[in-house]
């Protein structure tokens, strides 16, 4: 579904991604872990198409097409969803309106008519239950005055409504207490599906107790330095990033020498 090859990206002429390789197939859950500044969020944002990132090398293909060629909105319409690390507050635009605009925009792209109002409301109410969100939240302005946990739940609600083919969760666990974390993880797990891939970007192993990944990748200094199964996350938890980065660095040096 998603194939990233030798991806290099700069921000303000500073090299952040220095050759990322990643293959993600439908039905899989991948965790990308790494210390602050390793390029995790850059990778998530590059996939969603945020401005301010210069791709200097490499390629990203999504369902066989060049992803980097698509506009932000077309990526969303093609089924890519980014759950934001810092969801944006939009005073004056209600949650409900945003969801309606999003759903119908995607339907239009796929040649479908707008969703009938009754069907839409039922869909939203069902999905809101999934993340334990009260109906009155739907009438409120997007994320305005929401607590950290409410904002993250709102991201998962949007994801549940839009039913993306590829979901990228950028530090969705950050700033959550354990109850909110369980609700968010429950929402994510409910969306696991054989036709859907999920990439979970996280600093901590904690979320992975609840959303168990098929693969764990460790990103350090703009490269994937190790890939393994869920046990790799536990190993990281025990030994920390520094030790692993050093080991990887000496391995790279050794390769360079030989």
């Amino acid at each position: 579904m998603l194939s990233i090859k030798n991806l290099h990206a700069d921000v303000d002429n500073k090299s952040i991604l220095k050759g990322v390789d990643l293959e993600v197939k439908a039905g899989e859950v991948h965790a990308i872990m790494g210390p602050n500044g390793s390029g995790k969020s850059t990778l998530a944002n590059v996939l969603a198409g945020r401005e301010g990132y210069q791709i200097t090398q490499g390629e990203v293909t999504y369902n066989g097409h060049d992803l980097l060629d698509l506009s932000v909105e077309d990526r969303a319409r093609e089924g890519i969803f980014l759950a934001f690390q810092y969801p944006v507050e939009i005073p004056g635009v209600s949650n409900l309106y945003l969801l309606k605009a999003a759903v119908n925009s995607i339907r239009k792209y796929r040649g479908l008519d707008e969703m009938p109002a009754v069907e839409f409301m039922k869909l939203i109410r069902d999905k809101a239950k999934l993340v334990d969100m009260k109906p009155e939240f739907l009438q409120r302005s997007v994320n305005e005055g929401f607590s950290g946990g409410e904002k993250k739940r709102n991201e998962i609600l949007q994801m549940a409504v839009l039913e993306p083919a590829l979901a990228v969760l950028d530090e969705t666990d950050s700033g959550l207490d354990i109850d909110a974390l369980k609700i968010v993880a429950g929402g994510v797990n409910a969306l696991r599906h054989e036709e859907r891939a999920i990439i979970v970007v996280t600093h901590y192993q904690r979320l992975l107790d609840y959303v168990v990944p098929d693969y764990v990748h460790v990103l350090a200094d703009g490269r994937v330095i190790r890939t393994g199964d869920k046990s790799l996350a536990l190993e990281l938890e025990r030994h920390g990033y520094t030790e692993m980065s050093e080991a990887a660095a000496s391995a790279i040096e050794a390769r360079a020498v030989s």
Binding site: A48, G49, R50, E51, S71, V72, E73, R75, A76, R77, F81, L82, F84, P87, V88, E89, I90, V93, Y97, L98, A101, A102, S105, I106, Y109, Q158, L162
Partner: peptide, 19 residues
Amino acid sequence: AVFYLRSRAVAESIARSLL
């Protein structure tokens, strides 16, 4: 906010109008 709306499939022109 424009990026956020676009990432939810809303066209850029509409996103700007909405905001």
